[in-house]
Design a protein around this nucleic acid. Structure first.
Length: 471
RNA sequence: UCCUCCGUAGCUCAAUGGUAGAGCGAGCGGCUGUUAACCGCUAGGUUACUGGUUCGAGUCCAGUCGGAGGAGCCA
């Protein structure tokens, strides 16, 4: 006898005999008709658990009456239209097989009770049994699929850039060291430095902070590429928007400028929102009801309206002329603070905003120096873009890349970097250079944006953050 | 890393420096085609850790560890 996923059981014709397998979410007993139990069973295939009705005449009813939240069961019975409210169909159980008991119901970590997200983080191996974390897992999967599908349809190739990097020049933050040296017996050179030539790779190596420099090489030959994988930052960041290990999508497009870049990002957000509304409306309704009201309307807004683009200079003018009181000064030439970004996207525009053409001094060396007058930009700006979204802040960071070798070299010098470290990156500008652009989209921040989950540690299965590497 | 707040039952939280409490969850019983069920009873505690002040510390002080929110860094 084959068994059904619960999502398929909900779609099956009443009258047929079905088997489902899963975990008990709740059980309620009744003494009516000589005794019966209502067992809600979930298997992760959809938001709603299915209700099974077990009567007292089952041979193992004494066992059934001892079932708790968390027990695993296999239930066979007739699918019928429900007599009660709250569900369309239910299973009249002919057989309830207990597959696994809960050892001590009194201390079962995810008992049938409200739990705080902080507590559930401490039991990350069991929190997926709650409706919130089940929904997050399904939405996370759906978003990943949407991104791959969207890129594939536009003929972008997924490039698997390395996790371990020997280049010390990715320039996006503190790195985790990768080494097989014996901590208690570190080899030293004659002048007392650590001798990395004795290390596994024969040189210093780290976990990647970005696949961008690597993927640019594929861009300059395959035209349209992207990375989608984990990245690592060893910064001591303790916020609800940062992780030490997070996933990032980094598209890179050749023969393209900043506006092509924004169009791609805008389309990606639209595809994600549209797919989610179509494929995971059950989970979205839960997020809308219990996590953040209005999340469905927000996603509909993403589908309908394109991302609004403004220049950094205009953004500063808006911030200077508004009546909002900020803790930090608004000044052309300094980076916008979180409070400024939030004001722009949440209060002023009330939608995603792409801010472009930032002062060069606050941005990375590889961002293309604007020709004076581009989009009305002053000369000392670069073709960078940050896409800000309500609730999350910075979701996307990108730029048109500097394709002119002389300008690139000048920028490397200005920033006190070492040209030789970038030898292969510079080669791309020597041999058939092309205008190109790309961006990084934080996958967990996208999930936060689409679900309303406030803490980034609750949208990744096993969060890695300072002092957090359990599981 | 900085600022602020917090750490008491399985969980969420109370408790003027003077006997350790409730709700939920759990166990038992009652009631009911139930669905955040309801009613009754029962069990459940090294008050994060270390030290100090005091006749007496969950409460005050110092340190350590852990957590949350905000900031910086960024995605």
């Amino acid at each position: 006898m084959t068994w059904l996923k619960i999502k398929d059981a909900f779609q099956a014709q009443p009258g047929q005999t079905v088997t489902v397998k899963g975990w008990v979410r709740t059980k309620r007993d009744s003494k009516a008709d000589g005794g019966l139990s209502f067992i809600a069973v979930h298997d992760g295939t959809c938001f709603d658990p299915i209700q099974a009705v077990a009567r007292h005449d089952l041979s193992n009813y004494d066992e059934v009456s001892k079932l708790n939240t968390g027990c695993s069961v296999e239930i066979t019975g007739e699918l019928v239209e429900s007599q009660g409210k709250g569900q369309s169909v239910e299973i009249q159980a002919h057989q309830v097989k207990v597959v696994g008991w809960v050892e001590d119901p009194d201390t079962y970590p995810t008992s049938n009770k409200r739990h705080s997200f902080e507590y559930l983080r401490e039991v990350a191996h069991l929190r997926t049994r709650t409706n919130t974390f089940g929904a997050v897992a399904r939405v996370r999967h759906a978003l990943a699929q949407s991104i791959h599908r969207y890129m594939d349809e536009l003929d972008y190739y997924w490039v698997h850039t390395p996790i371990i990097t020997g280049s010390d020049c990715e320039g996006a933050g503190e790195m985790f060291r990768v080494s097989t040296l014996d901590f208690c017996n570190i080899p030293k050179t004659d002048d007392g430095e650590v001798d990395f030539s004795k290390d596994f790779f024969g040189k210093e190596s780290h976990l990647t902070v970005s696949g961008q420099l690597n993927v640019e090489t594929y861009c300059c030959s395959l035209s349209r590429v992207y990375t989608f994988g984990p990245t690592f930052r060893a910064e001591n960041s303790n916020t609800s928007r940062h992780l030490a290990e997070f996933w990032m999508i980094e598209p890179e497009l050749a023969f393209a400028d900043l506006h092509d870049n924004i169009e791609l990002a805008s389309g990606m957000l639209r595809a994600c929102a549209s797919d989610l509304l179509e494929r995971r409306i059950d989970d979205l309704e839960f997020f809308d009801l219990r996590i953040e009201k209005g999340i469905i309307d927000r996603l509909k807004m993403i589908v309908e309206s394109p991302v609004k683009t403004i220049t950094y200079t205009d953004a500063i003018k808006i911030l200077e002329s508004c009546n909002e009181k900020f803790d930090y000064e608004v000044k052309w030439g300094s980076d916008m603070q979180s409070e400024h970004e939030r004001y722009l996207t949440e209060k002023h525009f009330k939608q995603p905003v792409a801010v472009i053409n930032y002062p060069k001094d606050i941005k990375a060396f590889y961002m293309r120096l604007n020709d004076s007058g581009t989009d009305g930009a002053p000369a000392d700006t670069v073709a960078a873009v940050d896409i800000l979204v309500p609730g999350v802040g910075e979701l996307v960071g990108g730029s048109q890349r500097e394709e002119r070798l002389d300008v690139l070299d000048q920028r490397i010098d200005e920033m006190g970097l070492i040209k030789d470290d970038y030898w292969w990156y510079r080669d791309l500008r020597k041999y058939g250079t092309v205008p190109h652009a790309g961006y990084g989209l934080g996958f967990e921040r996208l999930i936060q944006f689409c679900t309303g989950m406030q803490n980034i540690r609750d949208v990744i299965p096993f969060p890695r953050a300072p002092r957090q590497a359990e599981f």
